[in-house]
């Protein structure tokens, strides 16, 4: 599964993440540290995701 990580604008290849929570765990993020967006829609940690999905993980901590 190809995930776009922001603000770094880097692509990550993540295997076998069936939910948003799984995905965030694999990226070593807590659910309150990023917003997860699929096709312009925000996803809660319990939502199921598919390997074909185009997903953006936008980290939210402001720095400076």
């Amino acid at each position: 599964m190809q995930i776009l990580i922001e603000p770094e604008n880097q692509w990550a290849d993540i295997d076998r993440a069936s939910t948003v929570l799984n995905l965030l765990k694999k990226l070593e993020l807590r659910p309150n540290q990023a917003v997860v967006i699929r096709n312009g829609e925000l996803l809660t940690p319990d939502r199921k995701i598919d390997p074909e999905d185009s997903i953006v993980v936008r980290k939210i901590a402001s720095r400076g």
Partner: peptide
């Protein structure tokens, strides 16, 4: 929280800057 303002900005259609300051 920061998480809540990030979600609000997204839902309100606010195109905000999320590049960190290089000195931070």
């Amino acid at each position: 929280s920061e998480f809540e303002t990030a979600n609000y900005s997204f839902l309100a259609g606010i195109d905000y800057c999320y590049s960190p300051c290089p000195y931070s």
